[in-house]
Simulated scan of single mutants.
Amino acid sequence: MKISAKIKFLWNAFVIAVNTGAVMIPAIMLFPKHKGAIMHNLNRVTLFLMGAKVVQEGAMDPEADMYVMNHQGIIDIIGMEALQDRHLMWVAKKELFSMPIYGHLLRHGDMISLDRGNKAGLIKLMKDVKVSLDEKHRAIAIFPEGTRAKDQKLLP
């Protein structure tokens, strides 16, 4: 790996960690009614500081209840949040909720935890989705394959 690529990687990791850990998490804890706007705007700032540019092809359906997609890394989530005006409720595997920084973001961001290890996890997921749609009026975003797919196509 070239030295410039290493420096860019370290800079991007630093930007994501500081923006998430030092700014976003405290902001959503202090201003819980504005979580969506805080996350969207700070993710736009994160992309700007990383020198990234989000390009959207087509229009997202504002009436959609669920967004199903693949992702290759955390930048996909940051980009999706930066593009949104709606406050999405993300579905994430429960192991991510115990991570040091990002676990706080998931918990305080009011996201859905999915226990893939037991069958009751699927029932809990369905109940949480119903609450999200009916009571909180938040669309669901899910990566059913996480980073397991080799390309951007969903597996059968």
Rank of each mutant, 00 (worst) to 15 (best):
M24I: 15
N118I: 04
F9G: 08
K136S: 06
K53N: 10
Q152R: 15
R86A: 10
D128I: 02
M39N: 02
M99R: 09
E81Q: 06
L88K: 01
D115A: 13
V54P: 04
D61T: 12
W90I: 05
K33T: 01
T147F: 13
P144G: 06
L105I: 10
M24W: 03
V131E: 04
I142S: 01
A17N: 09
G51Q: 14
I142H: 04
A92E: 02
K119G: 01
M126W: 05
F97K: 00
G121Y: 06
A59D: 14
S98M: 07
I101C: 11
L42G: 01
N41R: 11
W11D: 04
P26M: 02
L114K: 00
M111H: 03
N41C: 02
M66I: 07
W90T: 06
A17I: 11
D110P: 03
L133G: 04
A59P: 01
E145K: 04
F31Q: 13
G79A: 09
F48W: 15
S98V: 02
P100K: 08
N41D: 10
V129P: 07
D110C: 04
V18T: 13
Q84I: 09
V129K: 10
N70K: 12
I75K: 08
I140V: 15
H104E: 09
M1A: 08
G103K: 06
H137A: 05
L42R: 00
K53E: 11
L114T: 12
V131G: 03
H40P: 05
I77V: 12
K150V: 14
A13M: 13
Y102D: 12
R86I: 00
I142G: 00
M80R: 01
K119S: 11
A22D: 13
K136L: 12
L105F: 12
K35L: 00
H87W: 05
K94Q: 14
I3L: 10
Q72W: 05
G73F: 04
L96E: 09
Q72R: 14
I38E: 02
R86M: 13
M39L: 15
V18H: 05
H108M: 08
A27E: 04
L30P: 10
I78A: 02
A82S: 08
G79C: 02
A52V: 06
R86P: 01
